[in-house]
Design a protein around this nucleic acid. Structure first.
Length: 540
DNA sequence: TAATCCGGATGTGTGGCACC
DNA sequence: GGTGCCACACATCCGGATTA
């Protein structure tokens, strides 16, 4: 922007919008579909005057839910770069757009179409702006020229980002020097998102889904082996770093529990049928089924009592002593949960052998049914039945704590993967800022009827879908370090997901000045990045 | 027999260290 | 501080072994 001068007209329009801005009823026209802020980048001002104008420009975007950076840093897969007057010719193949787009959107009070201003026919920049696509999906002229000439300059950081890797060497059978590309946190999220979204939890050990992901370029041009290796050896061990709900985390981790062996076919059908239901009925059953699939023997452990508590204590002791905790010990060692499928079952799914807890008679008396879907339902019901009803006189266990105990978080130490792509930890800090934690601290713990900690994910609350929209921006409502309130409803703080959602949904995108209201209407203004925490007043 | 698992080879990037 | 060497970690790919 600054290089080309900022017109007085542009500046006066900014003043006008600022004057007319209604802070009590802001329009979040620069919010992505996942309610995260759209990202824009403008070059730094060269003069004090320009600096003032850019501050106004930035404020306006942020007041309408967007985010402005003054340098790209690394990543920038969704950043819209803005210039003021004219796009320089040497940028004709780049992703620059006129800042007038912002003015147009503000004037119309509606996000304008960026596609009409693009040079990339294969990717709609609106989708990039909204976070649905990435600039990595864009094929630029220079890429084509380089490919045609076979002159791929690998020393340029720019070309490094766009370099097509792998295919060349595999097709030509010639060893091609490829640059090592560290995985970014975004790429890891993409992988995790895809698995969660497609419910491929139980297929990650196979190859099919990874090949599918490679075909769909979930991680750009990374090979399926690479993504698989990354997921199994890196993402899973540090799954705690992704803001998954305990249920989802459980689900992701369940295939790695040695005492849970699920028939591939059964779960493939399960996931398929679930997807169909979603697609056909337009209503996600994810929460319903997920909560049940997620509550495998691992999760069950979080709700057991008596001996279960001893198990948990044992786990805790093991961890305190730095003793490795095998996944087998995460569940109930005495109850092997193994669901196998005999050849005969091919003919009659009802003959599925479902071995589970010898002490669980419900399991042994599973009703027979000819439909494999029924088998899934029964599987669900088994896990449900294994949940004892919570009684007031029984101790409760925080499912989150149990899960964290069951699956030790591996400290991978310095993950150099991030160092290259995230200089100065910029990207990481962004993630931290965009993670909004609503914690009821030093207060009573919020328990629902089952005695489990409630956690709300806005995306889920909103439409029970797109749960994997943006794991980094998952907004959690947590009750931490507090006394547990049992069935005394009067003492139990209950968050109203709908109400809170309406509040945080907007507040999550207010930019630097964000306002959120807790149930007790304590308002907190947070100007420290985007991390918002509020402390509901103690119930007297 | 195809799919999957698993270990190893290869190339590359990074950090530590000694030396100038 | 700059440079070179070395060790280690990481990403990617390959191929044999195992499994369904």
């Amino acid at each position: 922007m600054s290089e080309q001068g900022i017109s007085d007209e542009f500046s006066s329009k900014l003043d006008k919008f600022l004057d007319e801005f209604d802070s009590s009823n802001p329009d979040f026209i620069f919010c992505k579909d996942d309610f995260n802020p759209m990202e824009f980048c403008v070059s730094p001002a060269l003069s004090k005057e320009e600096g003032n104008i850019l501050r106004k420009f930035r404020s306006l975007i942020e007041m309408h839910g967007g985010m402005v950076k003054f340098n790209l840093g690394t990543g920038g897969h969704h950043i819209i770069k803005l210039v003021h007057n004219k796009i320089p010719s040497f940028y004709s193949d780049d992703d620059l757009f006129l800042a007038q787009f912002i003015i147009d959107s503000l004037e119309a009070n509606k996000l304008q179409n960026l596609a009409s201003k693009t040079k990339f026919p294969d990717v709609n920049p609106n989708h990039i702006m909204r976070g649905l696509k990435s600039w990595e999906d864009v094929k630029r002229k220079r890429d084509t020229q380089e490919e045609e000439s076979g002159n791929v300059v690998i020393d340029s950081s720019e070309s490094e980002e766009n370099m097509e890797r792998g295919e060349c060497s595999r097709n030509s059978k010639k060893p091609v020097k490829r640059r090592k590309q560290y995985y970014s946190i975004d790429e890891e999220r993409e992988i995790l998102n895809y698995i969660v979204k497609k419910r491929y939890f139980f297929r990650v050990k196979g190859n099919a889904i990874w090949k599918d992901m490679e075909n769909k370029k979930v991680c750009g041009s990374r090979t399926w082996q690479s993504m698989k290796e990354r997921y199994l050896n890196h993402i899973i061990p540090k799954i705690g770093q992704f803001n998954l709900t305990p249920e989802k985390k459980n689900k992701v981790l369940t295939p790695f529990s040695s005492n849970v062996k699920i028939s591939h076919d059964v779960f493939e059908e399960a996931t398929t049928s679930n997807s169909n239901i979603e697609t056909n009925e337009g209503e996600s059953v994810e929460d319903h089924n997920e909560s049940k699939f997620g509550e495998s023997s691992l999760d069950k452990g979080t709700k057991q009592t008596g001996k279960r508590k001893n198990d948990n204590e044992e786990l805790e002791n093991k961890q305190l002593n730095s003793e490795p905790v095998s996944s087998a010990s995460c569940g109930d060692n005495t109850h092997e949960s193994k669901i196998s499928e005999s050849p005969a079952n091919d003919k009659n799914p009802s003959e599925q052998i479902i071995k589970e807890p010898t002490t669980n008679e419900e399991v042994q008396n599973v009703p027979k049914d000819s439909s494999s879907n029924k088998v899934i339902e029964e599987l669900i019901s088994i896990w449900d039945l294994s949940e004892p009803e919570t009684r007031p006189d029984e101790p409760h266990f925080d499912s989150r704590q149990d899960i964290s105990k069951s699956f030790p978080t591996y400290d991978t130490g310095q993950d150099k993967s991030y160092h290259e792509k995230i200089p100065n930890n910029e990207e990481c800090s962004d993630d931290i800022r965009s993670t909004q934690t609503f914690g009821a601290q030093e207060n009573v713990e919020c328990l629902d009827e089952i005695g489990r900690t409630q956690e709300f994910e806005p995306e889920e609350v909103q439409n029970n879908e797109e749960c994997s929209g943006n794991l980094g921006s998952t907004q959690r409502f947590e009750a931490q370090n507090n006394e547990v309130c049992l069935d005394d409803i009067e003492k139990t703080q209950e968050f109203e997901p709908e109400e809170i959602h309406n509040n945080e949904e907007r507040s999550g995108n207010l930019g630097s000045t964000q306002r959120c209201e807790a149930q007790n209407n304590e308002v907190c203004l947070d100007d420290i990045g985007k991390t918002q925490e509020f402390e509901p007043k103690k119930q007297s």
